[in-house]
Write a protein that binds this DNA or RNA. Structure first.
Length: 582
RNA sequence: GGGCUCGUGGCUUAGCUUGGAUAAAGCACCGGCCUUCUAAGCCGGGGAUCGCGGGUUCGAAUCCCGCCGAGUCCGCCA
């Protein structure tokens, strides 16, 4: 409901500005609306106008408010006041009532479809298990997927499988000499072979030639080699998928990069770049270098031996993605629809590559994707490396955090049976992990501290889950007393400050989803979820529900029900399960 | 060396894009609250020259320049 309120504020403010003959259209800051602790929405426009009209902002604010009229009917605004240079707008009872109504009505957001989005995330090399660095990628990506779906997009999620890289060649080579440990989870077994094989290859350059020969054969489509590759990659991928599933993450499509080589798409891209791009031959050999505008470093698109590189395969993949979007052929224009988007979630190390990718795609006539770049996760001992065996696997982390969560559940709920406690521990543990990763802004470097990560008690997610469980518990107790949630409640009875604050917070759900989806910042969702839980807890403390007198109880039950709905929705957007009891 | 990012109470962070109302939270610390719907909760308290220095502005955590510190990239790797 907040968005509607904002829209009305814009409307009445614009009218007042016109009536008072202020020329606001040229102002850079526009109406300069902001959320504020002093009002439900505040405008700072008087500051900007003060400059143009050479009058104190206080006077201008006062003048605007004098010209401002709140509609007599169907308005969401109760009051507007000039507080010094600020113009403060406040919501009315109708706004509060409508907010609850809206939450009760909307079961699933089936509003206007905004378009299609293809989002790629995680895309870890199939040479070992996911580690905590991939975890950040996966969780940021997955929350974005959920946010975008909520915002009304038709979202398709991709995992780009890097099956042609040197590291996979090393694993395939190694698998012929070293047996997989069949007792281990498959992706971990692959990592063991990779690490061991890599050591051998580093010690002996003859082995490196074997690996390169394997790579050439794979690229050429040698049947026997393809089979070996597929076996290894699938083995690793099945382990990775199991970890993702445990994290509540799923991809719609796993796209193998080799498809683009063998299907001829990479060749087409290279040919087209040769024609349309500024191509040079590289130093000693005949490698193809593509010069890109505004980027100092040229992009190598083909090796001297004629084989392809990751970036070229990625180019082919992106062109293919763009063709998967809804064809937009109106007025004879062919291309992706303006509402469609392609999003890639990449680590900071891919920043330069992503710029090169965007420029090269431009040459190919393909719209550049949007990049969500996140900073690195490192260990106190240094950066992560699968090859060096220096990483903490997602599996190990999940294992330990669930165990720790179990201890906490066990401490508090002696009454529950083991299975139930395990179920709650799983929800709390994975939730805590996900929340931890997503709450930090993407462009902040994280130094991962294992002990701290396991400290369930001071996590954000359980706090939010707990307030949801509290709401459930009230509703359950209500049911036992045969209290039913009614439609004929009186929202105007909800007068306590904590009640009003909670409703206002509930009203911001859509607004937060919109911001997070347009700015591609999932941490905004995490922040809102925490604030919402806090508002609910304040209400919980202040306002008895079941023991309130009849009419008030009816209204409060509706509020609790709405809070539960929104809490469970926001947890769902975060990919965190909402337990009914804890 | 060059590019990009980050630097906010003891610790982890939000705010920075679009400059404005006492710099906002969590954790930790100190003190208080369970005979009323789950205390994984609530209330109170102390604690910040917003890395340092300059500049722009009526006004800077926010914009610009310089410096320092951390990360990352600058591969015929992915």
């Amino acid at each position: 409901m907040f968005l509607e309120f904002e829209k009305e504020v814009e409307h009445v403010l614009t009218e007042a500005l016109e009536k008072a003959s202020y020329d606001y259209k040229e102002l850079e800051a526009g109406l300069d609306l902001e959320e504020s602790e002093h009002a439900d929405i505040a405008s700072r426009i008087a500051f900007s106008l003060a400059r143009t009209y050479k009058k104190p902002p206080e006077i201008i604010a006062e003048d605007i408010v004098n010209h401002l009229e709140i509609p007599s009917k169907n308005t969401l605004i109760s009051n507007v006041v000039a507080a010094g240079p600020y113009i403060n707008f406040y919501v009315n009872d109708f706004f509060l009532h409508k907010t609850l109504q809206r939450i009760k009505e909307v079961i699933e957001p089936t509003e206007e479809k905004k378009g299609k989005i293809i989002i790629e995330h995680t895309s870890a090399n199939p040479d070992g298990p996911l580690h905590i660095g991939h975890l950040r990628n996966a969780i940021i990506g997955d929350v974005l997927v959920r946010v975008l779906k909520r915002a009304g997009y038709d979202v398709e999620t991709h995992f780009f499988v890097n099956d042609m890289g040197r590291q996979i060649g090393v694993v395939v080579w190694g698998a012929e000499r070293i047996a997989f440990d069949e007792t281990k989870k498959t992706d971990h077994a692959v990592a063991d072979v990779y690490i061991a094989a890599n050591r051998l290859v580093e010690e002996n350059s003859e082995f490196l030639k074997d690996v390169e020969s394997l790579m050439r054969k794979y690229e050429a489509g040698d049947e026997a080699v393809v089979k070996k590759y597929e076996a290894v990659v699938k083995k690793c991928l099945s382990g990775i998928q199991a970890s993702l599933q445990r994290l509540n993450i799923r991809h719609d499509l796993f796209v193998w990069e080799s498809e683009f080589v063998r299907g001829g798409a990479v060749e087409e891209v290279i040919e087209e770049l040769k024609q349309k791009g500024n191509i040079k031959f590289g130093g000693s050999g005949s490698a193809l270098l593509l010069q890109l505008e505004g980027i100092e470093k040229e992009l190598v698109i083909q090796r001297t031996d004629g084989t392809s590189l990751y970036t070229t395969r990625d180019l082919a993949y992106h062109r293919w993605k763009s063709n998967r979007l809804s064809p937009y052929r109106a007025c004879g224009v062919v291309g992706q629809s303006p509402t469609d988007r392609v999003i890639d979630v990449f680590g900071k190390d891919h920043e330069l590559v992503s710029q090169q990718l965007a420029k090269a795609l431009e040459i190919l006539g393909v719209n550049a994707p949007e990049f969500v770049i996140f900073e690195f996760v490192s260990l106190p001992t240094g950066s992560l490396s699968t090859r060096a065996g220096r990483y903490i696997s997602a599996d190990e982390l999940m294992e330990k955090i669930e165990a720790r969560a179990y201890e906490e559940v066990d401490k508090r709920r002696k009454d529950l049976d083991k299975d139930k406690k395990h179920e709650i521990a799983r929800k709390v543990g994975i939730g805590a992990l996900r929340y931890d990763m997503v709450k930090v802004s993407q462009d902040k470097h994280i130094v991962f501290d294992f002990e701290e990560a396991l400290d369930i008690e001071k996590k954000g997610a359980p706090f939010i889950q707990y307030s949801h469980a509290r709401a459930c518990s009230i509703l359950k107790a209500a049911e036992e007393r045969d209290y039913v949630i009614m439609d004929d409640y009186d929202a105007s009875l909800l007068r306590e400050e904590s009640e009003v604050e909670l409703i206002k917070k509930l009203a911001k759900f859509k607004y937060v989803i919109e911001s997070a989806s347009s700015e591609l910042k999932p941490h905004l969702v995490a922040k809102y979820a925490r604030e919402l839980a806090e508002s609910f807890n304040l209400f919980y403390k202040d306002c008895p529900v079941l023991n309130a007198e009849d009419e008030l109880r009816k209204a409060r039950m509706v509020l609790v029900d709405c809070a539960k709905t929104v809490l469970s929705n926001i947890l769902n957007v975060l990919g965190i399960e909402a337990p009914e009891e804890m």
